[in-house]
Amino acid sequence: MGAAAKSALLKKNPTYFLWVGVFFLILTLVVGLLYYATQKIDYVWRWYRIPQYFVFYDDVEIRAEIEGTVKRITRKNGDAEVTVADVGEEESYHVPGGEIRVSEGDFIFSGDVLGSFGKWRVGILLQGLWLTLKVSFIAILFGIVIGLFAGLARISKNPALKWSAISYIELIRGSPLLVQIFIWYFVLGTLVNTLLRQQGIPLIPPLWFGVAALATFTGAYVAEMVRAGIQSISRGQTEASRSLGMTYVQSMVHVILPQALRRIIPPLAGQFISLIKDSSLLGIIAIRELTKATREVVTTSLQPFELWFVCALLYLVLTFSLSMLLQYVERRTLYQ
């Protein structure tokens, strides 16, 4: 905001900054009250314990697998090579970083630690975040494809296509997502995997039933948006393209859909943000996405307050990024 704009604003609404102040006061009050309440129940905030659930430094030990004496330790570029020898047997162990706990000539039992090295590992929260991202991304992609075809089928004149689309859309929109996830996992999942097992084919992991549940759920809503988007394009556009000799498909692909899709980007963005949040339900079918990961960490760390706030914040980061991305796409595709 420029200085001129600021003063203009002040003139129009002299109490503007007063109310900005009130806003921050409310914010501070809420946070303060929460903190006060947690103090009352003797909750100890330990924020420093949280980062380890994102990444942590792990100590990896290298153990001998045979019994014998340490014959030789050679060092190369900071790494070390430990050779253990016994009668007629010899084995070498690579120790990156070269932190050795034995010396040449030592007698070693099988299972003794020869050396160790530190390594950064991805924590359970970051793994959960990644899985949430992956599941949502795949479900959105499939949701778009399903929604596109279901939406086109919905406005088709062919009763088989039209009624299939209507049944699908109404069925999905009329029942809770949680129930749909159960049906995908406990009914369809059991059916499919039992059949696969009978045929000796590898089973499908729960993740994919979760993705399927989210994708079909989103697809139904996208279908309605696609339908509304297409119907919002004036009939003249279809007539103009068809009168030039374009087929139905050509007219859809080159003229109608580009305009319709552009128009439905804002509601689509809302739907995809819902999908990211709804993916938290997948925890109940043993998919360790962000929410389930948080729950697991909570039971081991006993820091629920910090963790649930962090969990909510991570979802916010995801949804906010997506919303920004789609706004960018919308601006980019706007014709003049």
Binding site: S234, G236, Q237, E239, A240, S241, S243, V255, P258, Q259, R262, Y335
Partner: peptide, 11 residues
């Protein structure tokens, strides 16, 4: 065919 409302493709 030429229409009353032109029906150009706006995109």
């Amino acid at each position: 065919m030429v229409f009353q409302n032109f029906n150009l493709f706006p995109h």
